[in-house]
Amino acid sequence: MKKEKVLIIIPAYNEEDNIEKTYQSILEYNSNHKTNYDVLVVDDGSFDQTKKILTEHAIPHISLITNLGIGGAVQTGYKYALEHEYDIAIQLDGDGQHNTDDLEKLIQPILEKKADMVIGSRFVKDSKSQFKSSQLRRVGIRLISTIIKWKTGEKIYDTTSGFRAINKKLIKLFTEIYPMEYPEPISTVYILSRGYKVKEIGVRMKDREGGKSSIHTWKNVYYMINVILNILLMKRGKKDAN
């Protein structure tokens, strides 16, 4: 059996406090598990020391020449993955929220061909996550979850998780079409409606370790309106999976 090529894509926007630690934890994972996962940090036009840190520590990265937002940054990673013929791409946030020890669980269903996408989830039964986000945001996540269930018939619990693994077919699809704003729930609905299989795996998440999250009340309202309209207005595509 040939060994799968795995790329870990880390979108980073002003993550000078966390990015080096995140990179180190993947190197540790590689030496502990005898794996050889590659890393690509996509610096989304940061204006802090992120770019300098990436260069000084020789961390593989692409620095976007201007800020594109999370969707545009992650899609750049997928384009890189397609160009270098990776079999699996994992998105992992650069802020230290996600635990690299969960990488193995995240990849397993794709290796066994049981799923096209695996979402690292805080809200499924086997999640030991301490950090479950604030009350209000959980209500929002649950609402999006209900709408996805109604639209696609599939239950996705952690709709906003940015810790996800996808296979080669989806890497190709996402290089062609990927939402620029709030890509996680929208892209999940997009592939579900096209017949791809999505699986959720319980993971641990921490609260942000440093830096500041860019969440404000109005932004949350805008987020909900944007995501819900996107999901409701999405055309039911033809089943092109398999």
């Binding site: 990265h61 692409i62 620095s63 976007l64 020449i65 201007t66 594109l68 545009g72 899609q75 750049t76 384009k79 890189y80 160009e83 620029m180």
Partner: peptide, 17 residues
């Protein structure tokens, strides 16, 4: 135009790398 600029930024940044 935004869609095209995004594509441009991605391609230029990848080339630069």
């Amino acid at each position: 135009q935004k869609r095209k600029i995004t594509l441009l930024v991605q391609e230029v940044s990848m080339l630069k790398e």
